[in-house]
Amino acid sequence: MGALFSFVMVILLVLLAYAGIKAANLQIFFGVVIPYAAILTFLLGFVYRMLKWSTSPVPFRIPTTCGQQKSLPWVKQNKIENPSTALGATVRMILEVFLFRSLFRNTKAELRDGRLGYGSSKWLWLGSLAFHVSFFTISFRHLRLFLQPVPSPVHFVETLDGFLQIGAPTFLITGSILLLAALFLLLRRFLLPTIRYISLPADYFPLFLIIAIASTGILMRYFLKIDVVSVKELTMGLVSLNPMIPEKIDVIFYIHLFLISVLLAYFPFSKLMHMGGVFLSPTRNLSNNNRMVRHINPWNYPVKARTYEEYEDEFREKMKNAGIPVEKE
C-alpha cells in the first residue's frame, strides 16, 4: 500500500510538471519559483532541525562500545571502536559517516534444524554505500552547471566517473549505479518480508523520487540530448540571482528540476535528515572516557534518596545486636 501510494505520488509529480510546462507554459514557476522555494526550504528546514536537536542536551555519556576499553597499560585498547579521546571518536565518526562502519558489521541470522547461524551479509552495506557515494558524486558533478568557469576538481571527478570512455556523451558510471542501488534498496523492501513489514510510505516515497530523478537525468543526457548550454543558462541565472528562462529547454528538464525541488523541500521533514542526525548520535560521537572525565547533565536535579541516618534509625538495634558499628549508640 505504502509503495503504491508513493509510486502514484511520484507519477503525479511528474505529470504535474509535464502539464505545467506543456499545457500551461509555467516555465517561470517550475524553473525559478519552485527551485528557489525548495532550496530555501531545504536550507532553513535543515538548520531548523539541527537546532531543534541541539536544544535537547545529552544528559549522559552513553557511547555504544564496540571494542576493548582503555584500562590497564598492557591491555590493548580498541581506540576507534571504544575511543577514550576526541580524536578516536572523530575517527570513529569518519568511518561511520563515510564508510558506514556499523553497517559493514551486518550479519544475517539463519535458523536451521533448531540451530542459529550467522553469515556475513554485506549487501545492504554495499548497496547503501554505492547509493550514497554515487548520489554525492552526481551532486558534485552537477556543479558544472552552477559554476563558471568550471573548477578543475569537477572535471577531475567527471573524468573519473567516465573512466570507461564509452560512447558520447561519455557514459558516467555513477548515474547507473545510483539507479541500480536505489532499485536494490527498493527491491529489498518489496522482497524481504520483514523489511516489507516495517516499511512506511515515507520509505518508498524518497526511493521512487530518487529513481525518477536518476531516470530523467539519464534520459536527458544519453537519449534526449537536451541543450546543456541553455540548461546552464537557467541554472546560472538561479545561482547568480538573475533568474531567466532560456528558450527551448525540453520539458524533461523541468520534470527533473521539479523532482529535485520536491526532494529538497521534502528533505528536512523526513527521515532523510539522518544525514545531519548521524553527526549528533550520542552512541557514536562520544568517547568512552566517563571514568576519567565527569560528564555534566545540565538538568541534573537533586533527588530525595534514603540517607544512612534514616537507614540506621530503622535498623540500629539489629545492627548493634549483630555487632555492626553504628554512628549513634
Partner: peptide
C-alpha cells in the same frame, strides 16, 4: 537528545 534524535532519524533499513 538521544530520544528525540532516535525518534527522528531511523530509515528502517532493517
Amino acid at each position: 537528545r538521544s530520544f528525540r534524535l532516535f525518534m527522528d532519524i531511523c530509515v528502517r533499513c532493517g
